[in-house]
């Protein structure tokens, strides 16, 4: 079986299995848009008119995350449920297919590929395609919502929302165009890296524990503002373009490349010796 055929098989079967999850991702995105719209109307109820939210404002609200938490006896930590729900759901969506394909029919396909590396590469590419599809669904849902609600489809960040609605505590009055790219690409890149890392972890520990490790990484990232926890780069609110002690773009790029490379190399290496008949 050629690599192209294997990839085609994975894309077809993986997407068929995860189609309903893409629909759920769209529903989440729609709920987040409605949430932002209502919050915006509520916050500026006493103003002469409610300011319009642009396409990028909606995305910023969805992917934003939370500002740095400074532990205090009087203020408890409130985890960013919207951000966590989205990232964990995408992680859940890519968890089952590669694991399932290591049993029954998938084993026959693996034997026919005559190369475990090709199988692993194909699953990694499917994983990347699926995460890209999830983000495409989110972008399209936000785009559709903006069209229906007659909100401007533009990439101009509305500065007043950053502190009023996203509670970023930003000292800046205007935001650079670089922040737009961070909002559009960094949550996606970190999601890609974490999904690949999760797939690799499945080889070492059970899928559910692998998911648990990702949940711990995301929660720890929300709790601690530090460049070594990848979740921080998936929160544009914690970017250096929003807060002075924010995480840097270059560190984020390095983190993504490191995670993807480490996941792929460790996965390839371990999968060559992996006992595929161990069906526990």
């Amino acid at each position: 079986m050629t690599f192209y055929k294997l990839l085609k098989y994975d894309v077809k079967n993986g997407f068929r299995l995860g189609l309903i999850n893409l629909l759920i991702v769209a529903l989440f995105a729609l709920a987040f848009c409605i949430d932002f719209y209502l919050r915006k109307n509520g916050a500026y109820i006493f103003d002469a008119s409610t300011p319009e939210g642009t396409f990028i404002d909606y995305l910023f609200y969805i992917f934003g995350g939370i500002k740095e938490y400074i532990p205090s006896r009087t203020d408890g930590f409130i985890f960013p449920v919207k951000w966590l729900l989205l990232h964990l759901f995408i992680l859940y969506s890519t968890l089952y297919y590669p694991y399932r394909d290591l049993s029954s029919l998938g084993l026959n396909i693996l034997v026919r590929t005559k190369g475990r590396m090709a199988w692993w590469l194909s699953k990694s590419l499917w994983n990347i395609c699926y995460v890209l599809a999830c983000y495409l669904v989110i972008f399209l849902t936000v785009f559709g919502f903006c069209l229906i609600m007659q909100e401007p489809i533009s990439l101009n960040i509305t500065p007043m929302f950053v502190n009023d609605l996203l509670e970023a505590d930003s000292p800046f009055d205007i935001f650079s165009t670089q922040l737009v790219y961070i909002i559009l690409f960094f949550p996606l890149f970190i999601s890609l890296a974490l999904n690949l890392l999760q797939m690799t972890f499945v080889l070492f520990i059970k899928p559910l524990y692998s998911f648990g490790v990702m949940a711990v990484i995301l929660l720890a990232s929300a709790y601690l503002l530090t460049p070594i926890l990848p979740g921080n780069y998936a929160m544009p609110i914690r970017s250096e373009h929003v807060v002075e002690n924010g995480v840097q773009v270059t560190d984020g790029v390095m983190m993504v490349l490191l995670l993807i490379a480490a996941s792929f190399i460790a996965g390839c290496d371990y999968f060559r010796r992996y006992d595929i008949l161990n069906d526990d």
Binding site: A31, D35, L38, R39, G42, V81, K82, L84, L85, L88, F89, Y92, L95, Y96, Y99, R100, P207, L208, F211
Partner: peptide
Amino acid sequence: KNRIAIILIPFFLILILHYSRTFLAY
């Protein structure tokens, strides 16, 4: 018929319930 879904769906249902609080704000 998916073991992963069986274990994770309750967790997501509770997270969705937690998120739904946002619509009750104020």
